[in-house]
Write a protein that binds this DNA or RNA. Structure first.
Lengths: 202, 202
DNA sequence: ACCCAACATGTAAGTAGTGACATGTCGAAC
DNA sequence: GTTCGACATGTCACTACTTACATGTTGGGT
């Protein structure tokens, strides 16, 4: 469902063709919300059927440029303000970490080094973009400001993952496994306790 | 595909039924890798067909306890060491941030407050679990150490998102939009430049 | 004796997303 | 004038995942 609104949102910036949008997903959104052309073209057809977007113009090679309609803009705003946020997160490398105990120490160390390097590089890419935006390279249109916020999320997320992978390296290498103590602070009531139960081994 | 290995990994710890595994996914893994019972039962059947797991014992109400086989353990190790990590990340709230410029300032502020609160609470839950593990509540079996690493990822990730949401609040509220400058450091070569291109507005 | 919540396993229909295939066009370089 | 890479749109089959439906058991409380 989210892709539908991603397309609607991008078309709220400016008209674009399926090809244009595919490029943008490949180049800018690959790490945020990957999408390939078959899904994009399909979703565009459905958005057009629903009247949320319409053909703006047609070009060579069957190129079809879409633009958002008033109904589409309204639908987008409805989604943003009324539709509950989906906090689902599936990060395979984190799932993998549950099973680190099954790996040979050498394999694990190699794995964690690569992971840290990957995350660090991604963070660096986002930082470069942020710096460019802060320099004003992209102007100060409203959607550029929003993108600056999105990019900040990328920086912080990948930085956090890189730090985590590096921490895990030292945490795993010392076989006497000295974990830095976490300060638990005030124990929580109700909700947290509920979420907590069953977090044991069995 | 990942669920398959998640189940295999959990069964490497100890035998369990589909029901047991469903409980564990609901209670411990809901935020890491959500999975519902229909998918779990289906995957277990396929794992059994493939010989990666086998029936350990049967209980009342048709309960079937599975255990991992040697072939299954080998397959799990192969996945961990040889299969390339899938870094795909789809975080809807971050996608949404691209379109913050379409929201009314009041709606946006409410949204960001809720997001920050949600992430902060999740981080707190993970911290509680980490503290319990550090106290030694769950023993020091190898898989408990791994889980401690996984939990650390949860803490850092949700903490980062909470900080981000709070930062975004102040960044959006000041309508003169004073973004903290990002220090770009040394500009990158090749790979980063490639990833960077097209990160503009159009 | 009965009821009900928790236990326990499944099927079926549908959505979201991927990878491979298919097709054709235009512009620029050689 | 031809070749080739980028442009441009689509279908099809498949995997992953979700929601709703379906069914039956067992143990504990009243």
């Amino acid at each position: 469902m989210s892709l539908r609104y991603a397309l609607l949102g991008l078309l709220a910036e400016q008209p674009a063709s399926g090809y244009d949008l595919t490029q943008r997903f490949e180049q800018q959104l690959a790490t945020i919300w990957p999408a390939k052309h078959p899904q994009i073209y399909g979703e565009l057809s459905r958005l057009a059927d629903a009247g949320s977007i319409e053909i703006d113009s047609e070009g060579p090679r069957g190129r079809k440029v879409y633009r958002i309609t008033d109904a589409g803009r309204a639908e987008m705003r409805r989604w943003l303000t009324e539709e509950p946020v989906d906090h689902t997160m599936r990060i395979e490398p984190i799932l993998r970490s549950l099973f680190y105990w099954l790996m040979e120490p050498d394999d694990l160390e190699r794995h964690l080094e690569r992971e840290a390097a990957y995350y660090r590089e991604q963070a660096e890419v986002f930082k470069q973009v942020a710096a460019a935006k802060d320099r004003g390279d992209y102007g100060d249109a409203p959607h550029v400001k929003s993108m600056r916020i999105t990019v900040e999320a990328g920086i912080r997320l990948y930085e956090a993952l890189a730090d985590w992978a590096e921490w895990a390296e030292t945490a795993s290498s010392g076989r006497s496994c000295e974990m830095p103590r976490v300060d638990a602070g005030e124990p929580f009531a109700s909700r947290t306790d509920e979420l907590l139960k069953g977090f044991g081994t069995d």
